[in-house]
């Protein structure tokens, strides 16, 4: 099969798998979001590296719902609370103090809830934010790749009220081109 076609077929199969295995959970989490918004809360979104792509899907889109807000490193940089080289070096991802800098910047509310993304469920910043939210009694939804999470014994879901599984492969490289692994599905 043409490798381009192969990729498209894999994506469709994963979309079906995600629906077939989790449509009840999707509905349950949607209800949690709705309840938060009915109460004038905002669903706070955060993911790092490629996790930010999930965040971008919910935040500020055509036909999207307004009360989604994303924690973005870009905001810290543009408000001079973070230097770009800390992102380039990867240093930022291990500094839990970054969460405080976000919280100084944003207008947060006790009625808010959190939707947090981490493929392995072990990103320090994401887990730190989950812990803080849970300690305040706020609802937390985790988005992880369950087979990867279980492999590394991630911890994010310890702080989550619900979660969704990305259903991607572990490792996340679904195509095999003569021994070369590539092609992310997450």
């Amino acid at each position: 099969m043409d490798v381009k076609k192969e990729y498209f077929e894999l994506i469709k199969s994963k979309v079906n798998e995600a629906y077939d295995t989790q449509h009840e959970q999707i509905a349950r989490i949607a209800a949690m979001f709705g309840e938060c918004m009915d109460n004038l809360g905002v669903v706070q979104l955060f993911g790092v590296r490629h996790g930010e792509e999930f965040v971008n899907e919910l935040n500020y889109r055509a036909g999207g719902i307004a009360p989604f807000h994303a924690y973005k490193f870009r905001d810290l940089i543009l408000n001079k609370k973070l230097e770009q080289d800390k992102i380039d070096s990867g240093e930022v991802y291990c500094d839990p103090g970054i969460i405080d800098r976000f919280e100084e910047l944003y207008e947060l509310d006790d009625r808010d809830m959190y939707c947090l993304v981490s493929f392995y469920g072990n990103e320090p910043l994401v887990t730190e934010l989950a812990k803080k939210a849970k300690a305040k009694g706020q609802k937390v939804v985790g988005i992880v790749n369950k087979r990867s999470y279980d492999k590394v014994k991630g911890t994010l879901l310890d702080y989550c009220d619900a979660y969704l599984d990305m259903c991607a492969d572990e490792p996340d490289a679904a195509l095999n081109i003569d021994g070369v692994r590539t092609g992310q599905l997450s």
Binding site: H50, R181, Q184
Partner: peptide, 10 residues
Amino acid sequence: GIDIKNRLGS
């Protein structure tokens, strides 16, 4: 661009 960068096999 982000989706095809800095990943295994990218």
